[in-house]
């Protein structure tokens, strides 16, 4: 589903990704771990072209993302993303936040879009919030709406960029529960600091350090016997 070959990304002098190779099968759930600045978020943002890779090749769902003729718009129709800061549209109701993209891109007709939106809201436990505005929601509710909004485009791949980092601790659980319910339904790549999600829901842990993937293992193996010193250090600091 996702195939990344020798991906590099620099911001000016700063070389953030230094040759990432990666293959993710359909319906796998992959957690990206690593200390801040290791390139996790940049890798994720390269996958849907929010950042333009400096060099390398990305293929998602058979589509060559790094081909010059592929537009960000095309890529993003099959790749959904959930952000740390939710980024809901404050001037639109919850329902319209969800239906905006499917309607304007011509993917769905109004009746179909509304029906799917309500179904997704039910799935994330917020069907009563359809007419509410983002400012009327708690952080956890906002993030659940953001997940529903991304799902409304029926993406093949979902990217989660630290989806619980901006939440109050008591709201982390509700968002993780929604994310866990998606595992194995679609291909998921998540940057997270929630080790419970990594342990319970992930098929694979990718541990990044200084712009490359240094460990790639099932969670049980990674958490029990990390191979590299960097990973050992990292696991010590978070426990």
């Amino acid at each position: 589903m996702i195939e990344v070959t020798s991906l590099h990304k620099s911001f000016g002098q700063l070389h953030v990704l230094r040759g990432v190779d990666l293959k993710v099968e359909a319906n796998q759930t992959v957690c990206l771990l690593g200390s801040s600045g290791s390139g996790k978020s940049t890798l994720l943002r390269c996958l849907n072209l929010l950042e333009l890779p400096t060099s390398g090749r990305i293929i998602i769902a058979g589509q060559n993302v790094t081909d010059r003729n592929t537009s960000m718009t095309d890529v993003c129709r099959s790749v959904g993303m959930v952000f740390q800061q939710f980024n809901l549209f404050p001037h639109l109701s919850v329902l319209k936040n969800i239906t905006l993209a499917p309607l304007k891109t011509g993917l769905q007709k109004p009746a179909e879009a509304n029906e799917l939106a309500m179904q997704l809201l039910k799935q994330v436990g917020l069907e009563d919030k359809a007419p509410a505005y983002p400012s009327q929601l708690s952080g956890g509710q906002k993030q659940r709406v953001a997940i529903a909004r991304a799902l409304a485009m029926r993406p093949k791949v979902m990217l989660f960029d630290e989806p619980t980092s901006a939440l109050d601790p008591e709201m982390v659980g509700e968002v993780l529960a929604v994310m866990k319910s998606l595992a194995h339904q679609m291909t998921i790549m998540a940057v997270t600091h929630e080790m419970s999600f990594a342990k319970d829901a992930a098929d694979r842990i990718l541990f990044m350090d200084q712009g490359v993937i240094v460990e790639d293992a099932p969670p049980a193996e990674f958490f029990a016997n990390p191979k590299t010193d960097r990973a050992k250090q990292f696991l010590n600091t978070i426990h």
Binding site: N48, L50, S71, M72, T73, C76, R77, V79, G80, M81, F83, Q85, N87, L88, F89, P90, H91, L100, A101, K104, T105, L107, A146, R149, A150, M153
Partner: peptide, 27 residues
Amino acid sequence: LDKGQTEAARALGLNRLQTFRFVVLPQ
């Protein structure tokens, strides 16, 4: 306007013009 607004709109598959028209301009 927060950069996250345009990023979210683009990530949802809206093109630049649609992002401007439906997300940036109303706000």
